[in-house]
């Protein structure tokens, strides 16, 4: 049937398709190209960049963002958003000094459990009550930070040897925190690609009504997603506290929600849901980290780095919009 189309329309469609493909290509692969270019630039221009010390430090610094952004990517895949991740990090970290008396494992378990609780709360509000994700998670963001302050008070140092070693030691030269982030990334990738849950998630984000009519467990999938995001945020909070050997309820995880959303968006996941790009998200987090690092290496002030971040986010969103227009 398609072969009977008249030549001009077909040629027209062809160009439109090619242009759409180009934008699509930029959207999905732009982040890798940018990351590679910036990396090469640093190899050439930055002294001591290509050393194990520098590179490992970059990886260690990026782990919290990567872990949080993975959860964020899933939430955004359902056409949602989670603003509470930074506060959940602070809350989890604030619990560590309180429960460290029961041993490192117990303290960490309780801290991670808090992410489970806030995630269930956010997910239930969104999926069952029907509150908009931005509102539901904003509430938890404000309340979570408040509770963290209430529990933690001021900065508390952490001296428990188990937790300290989690934040500072390595296995075969790879720091624990980086290892943990890598394992989490692999698990989330697997869940998104290979499991029923992951397939259902993108279908729900792509067309919720159709997913409901196809008998998908929409509520369960959405709640699970917020729980995963909450738990990952709590883990990130624990790792950050372990590395800095302190828990600061006011500062820890601040603006993390924005960094995570940025990583997801420049990684090629559309904010309109229906797609989850795990590798892209990791690359997005790495790119942001490298931009900051580059500016720091060359003594350019923080404010410039923030402006650079803004430009990149807007460009990423623009590319997505371009795609949408070309297909409509």
């Amino acid at each position: 049937m398609t072969t009977t189309a008249t030549p001009p329309t077909r040629a027209e469609a062809e160009t439109r398709r090619r242009r759409g493909l180009d934008l699509d290509w930029v959207r999905t692969n732009g982040v890798y190209v940018a990351l590679a270019l910036l990396f090469l630039l640093n190899v050439v221009w930055t002294n001591n960049f290509l050393t194990e010390r520098t590179l490992l430090l970059q990886l260690i610094q990026v782990t919290p963002v990567v872990i949080v952004a993975l959860g964020m990517a899933l939430v955004i895949g359902t056409e949602g958003i989670d603003l509470s991740v930074g506060a959940v990090m602070a809350l989890a970290a604030a619990l560590i000094p309180l429960y460290v008396g029961y041993g490192a494992a117990m303290a960490i378990l309780i801290a991670v459990l808090v992410g489970f609780v806030t995630g269930s709360l956010a997910g239930s509000m969104v999926a069952v009550v029907g509150v908009q994700p931005i509102v539901a998670t904003l509430g938890i963001m404000v309340a979570g930070r408040g509770v963290a302050n209430l529990l933690g008070g001021e900065i508390k140092t952490i001296r428990e040897p188990g937790i300290v070693s989690l934040g500072s030691e390595s296995l075969l030269g790879v720091p624990y925190v980086v290892l943990i982030a890598a394992v989490i990334a692999a698990l989330v990738w697997f869940a998104a690609r290979r499991t029923t849950y992951g397939r259902q998630l993108v279908a729900i984000g792509g067309n919720k009504r159709a997913a409901e009519l196809a008998g998908l467990p929409v509520k369960r999938v959405v709640i699970t997603t917020y729980v995963v995001a909450g738990v990952l945020a709590a883990i990130a909070g624990v790792l950050l506290a372990a590395r800095s050997q302190a828990s600061d309820p006011t500062k820890l995880g601040q603006l993390m929600e924005l960094s995570a959303i940025t990583a997801v968006v420049i990684g090629g996941t559309p904010l309109s849901g229906g797609q989850v790009r795990i590798i892209g998200t990791i690359a997005g987090a790495l790119l942001m980290q490298l931009i900051f690092a580059t500016l720091v290496f060359h003594n350019i002030p923080d404010s410039t780095a923030q402006m650079a971040q803004a430009v990149i986010v807007i460009a990423a969103v623009y590319v997505q919009m371009g795609r949408r227009r070309s297909t409509s």
Partner: peptide, 28 residues
């Protein structure tokens, strides 16, 4: 509005309602 998931493939659209049956232990 109520049928296709536009950004998924033909394949994923067809299998949508039977995913649990096409899976073992949650893995497709």
């Amino acid at each position: 509005a109520e049928g296709i998931i536009p950004d998924l493939s033909v394949r994923d659209n067809i299998a949508l309602a039977v995913l649990p049956r096409m899976s073992r232990m949650g893995i497709v």
